[in-house]
Write a protein that binds this DNA or RNA. Structure first.
Length: 744
DNA sequence: GAGCACTGC
């Protein structure tokens, strides 16, 4: 049955007049770059043209950066094509494979294709690969670029298309052997851009929320009807902006003395950020009531990875010119519009032209492990379109060595091979394997690992009363050993309550996060079964439910022995990785110091001082002094899952450990100093010599780090404390300064 | 002076 309406729709798309030209180009060229704006139809049409024109193609793969895009596009295309989703046309995302042996066109996330590549780096199932939304430059897209270039050498018959929305794509073409670029002319509307007369970005500081609210109100009262979209940096700012604008709106009396009040008689204000419930997110697409203007406050900030500490840090940084232009372009999607920048034209011109690709600002630990698994040993010389910072690569190699995933020559070990089975941070993969092969507690550790792989579990209500209620309710999950066991408690209670959304709401837990943890647990369990990793419980045999009130509880406080599980075994499993994040308490203060920073590039650069950065226990931790679960002086050694920089360095997910658990593994730091991890990199001799120097250096640093920690332990005079504080403050300032391009 | 944007396997 031919649906004429669908045909008419397909033919009205900007890409349609170029159908034959595109097909010819694909026929003649193994590599092709296609440019087309959002809405040009490139994502839905070009794969269909290929399906229709190349019947000999058994499978065409199209990657998308986001799950939702893969699903909706596949849906749309199967409808246009007149087949049921999952038959000729399907999609594949994590936890949801909607394809069949019949499938010839497969939409997927770039992460899925990357996982497939770790199993078969030739991508032998595919006759064509299309990397869509390449301009987003996700970590996965960038790695795929390098792999596909290699695959092209091995399989020149494989058709490779790179599709992008930006015009600045010579780079893609240059990378793929100067391949042709096909441009689909777009349909866009004019956007007028207004800059602030003189404000510098650096001078906005904390006033940007207030300024954005004032500007919104100005637009509302002075400009013709039309919605307003405001970009801010985080949830807090967004909520404050919503409140402030609502207050201002309430005080407006919509008298007919201003030109546009007859058309615009009120405001509807929406916040949008990821942790909002899906329903609340969808609300922003509702049509506002008549005569009202819609204002949306949305998020967007950048993540940075600090190579001097090897830690993730969330810092507010100025956007790039490209990102500013893209944001402004949002105003012209459906009609002409205006963009208001709260900073001057000069400030705009001083911004970085392009957004730094994700690969240059994130941890490469998992990426390097995947590449090694694919047989790519020489990571430094791997063909990246924009190579990552070599210091980041070296850091990743060191960490992988400390996890025993690679040996002292940089080669993948049997352990590393097994670790790459799991779609997890290599730290957590290592823990999971230890719990299965060594400590006999994988059934429980599996849960904790899943809980550590999801977004924030705790909801922090803004309302002070609710916040107190939330804090109170959290207490029932506390465990004297720390937060890992708390996570296990939470998941088990969630399970015992039938994975209920209402239960989550009552306890102030993020239902979406806990459901995701359940899915991940199930997936990991399947992978363990498939690869013969034993699933063993450490539940104690003689465990009986006994309620003898306070005495039992008091006894538990002084021991790691849970009445129910062998907690030591679980925490020992975690220590196989997290000895790298071992911290010792200051003798007289509730702060901690990292045991040996030899892992991070911190050891390479400045100082052994990085080990003296004061680490605080996060207020959300069961072990935080205010929570009174344990006395601070009962804490000696702890390991932490991650560090968050606020104005302090906060350890997140902290558990109490015994030094004897990690003593043996600490020896790996020593071995690291002697290892030559990028020996496989065929660098010039002089660079290799430099390499050796660095390694010698590391050896010294490891020692000095240990001496320093020892000093902290033995000495405790006021001067020393002062010195540490000065160092810490300097570090924090340096960290903040690095992120701001404008001078004060 | 307390708190973290977004993806994804």
């Amino acid at each position: 049955m031919v649906n004429t309406k669908i045909i008419r729709q397909r033919e009205s798309l900007p890409v349609f007049p170029y159908r034959q030209e595109i097909i010819d180009a694909i026929k003649n060229e193994p590599l092709l770059v296609v440019i087309g704006e959002t809405g040009s139809g490139k994502t839905t049409q070009i794969p269909q043209y290929m399906l229709e024109s190349f019947p000999e193609f058994r499978l065409i793969g199209v990657t998308q950066p986001r799950r939702i895009a893969a699903i909706t596009v596949a849906n749309r295309v199967s409808e246009e094509h007149g087949c049921r989703l999952g038959e000729d046309i399907g999609y594949c995302i994590r936890f949801d494979d909607c394809t069949s042996p019949k499938t010839r066109l497969k939409y997927m996330t770039d992460g899925v294709l990357l996982r497939e590549a770790t199993i078969d780096s030739r991508l032998g199932h595919y006759d064509a690969i299309i990397v869509d939304e390449a301009h987003e430059r996700t970590l996965e897209t960038d790695v795929l670029f390098g792999l596909l270039k290699e695959t092209h050498r091995l399989r020149p018959e494989l058709k490779i298309l790179v599709m992008s929305a930006t015009l600045n794509v010579e780079k893609f073409s240059d990378f793929f052997n100067s391949c042709p670029i096909f441009v689909i002319p777009g349909r866009t509307h004019d956007v007028a851009i207004n800059h602030h007369r003189d404000a510098k970005i650096s001078s906005l500081k904390s006033t940007f929320v207030q300024r954005s609210v004032e500007t919104s109100l100005y637009i509302h009262t002075q400009e013709p009807p039309g919605d307003i979209l405001v970009f801010l940096t985080g949830q807090n700012e967004i909520e404050k902006a919503c409140r402030d604008l609502e207050d201002l709106d309430r005080n407006l009396n919509y008298k007919p003395d201003v030109k546009y009040y007859e058309d615009v008689k009120g405001l509807v204000i929406y916040p949008i950020y990821a942790t909002l419930e899906t329903m609340e997110q969808k609300a922003i697409f509702d049509d506002p009531p008549r005569y009202t203007r819609k204002v949306v406050f949305a998020t967007n900030v950048a993540q940075t990875y600090d190579p001097t500490t090897g830690m993730d840090a969330l810092l507010v940084v100025p956007i790039s010119q490209a990102a500013a232009t893209q944001r402004a372009g949002r105003a012209g999607r459906t009609a002409s519009g205006q963009a208001f920048r709260l900073y001057s034209r000069e400030s705009y011109e001083q911004l970085e032209p392009d957004t730094v690709p994700e690969i240059q600002r994130s941890s490469l630990l998992g990426t390097v492990l995947s590449l090694k698994k694919m047989g790519i040993n020489d990571i430094i010389n791997f063909e990246f379109i924009d190579p990552p910072d070599p210091a980041m690569v070296k850091n990743a190699l060191k960490q992988l060595f400390l996890l025993e995933a690679i040996d002292d020559t940089g080669k993948l070990t049997a352990m590393g091979n097994e670790m790459s089975i799991f779609p997890l941070s290599p730290f957590l993969s290592r823990v999971l394997i230890a719990s299965a092969r060594q400590y006999e507690c994988s059934r429980e550790v599996l849960i904790i690992v899943a809980m550590l792989s999801v977004e924030e579990i705790f909801i922090s209500p803004r309302n002070a009363e609710k916040q107190m209620d939330a804090d109170e309710k959290r207490k029932e999950f506390y465990h004297p050993s720390g937060d890992h066991m708390m996570l296990l408690n939470i998941f088990e209670k969630f399970r015992d309550n039938g994975y209920s959304r209402d239960w989550c709401r009552d306890k102030y837990f993020n239902y979406r996060a806990l459901s995701m943890a359940k899915s991940i647990r199930d997936q990991l369990k399947e992978l363990m079964e498939k690869h013969d990793l034993p699933l063993v419980s450490c539940r104690l045999k003689n465990y009986q439910v006994k309620d003898d009130g306070g005495r039992q509880r008091k006894k538990r406080r002084n021991s790691y022995q849970d009445v129910k599980y062998n907690v030591e075994k679980m925490l020992e499993s975690f220590s196989t990785s997290y000895y790298i994040n071992l911290a010792k308490r200051h003798p007289h203060r509730p702060v901690f110091y990292h045991y040996a920073s030899a892992t991070g590039p911190g050891s390479e650069s400045i100082d052994s001082n990085s080990s003296l950065l004061a680490l605080h226990i996060s207020p959300t931790s069961a072990l935080h002094p205010d929570n009174k679960v344990v006395r601070v002086d009962d804490l000696d050694w702890v390991t932490y899952h991650s560090v968050l920089y606020t104005n302090k360095a906060l350890m997140k997910v902290v558990s109490k450990v015994k030094l004897e658990w990690v003593q043996e593994r600490l020896g790996l730091f020593k071995k690291l100093a002697a290892a030559n991890l990028d020996a496989s990199c065929s660098k010039s001799k002089s660079e290799n010599n430099m390499q050796d120097d660095t390694n010698d250096d590391n050896d010294n640093k490891v020692n000095s780090t240990m001496v320093d920690v020892q000093e902290v332990k033995n000495q405790d005079d006021e001067k020393k404390r002062k010195r540490l504080e000065v160092i810490e403050a300097a570090r924090q300032r340096a960290l903040a300064r690095k992120s701001i391009t404008d001078q004060d």
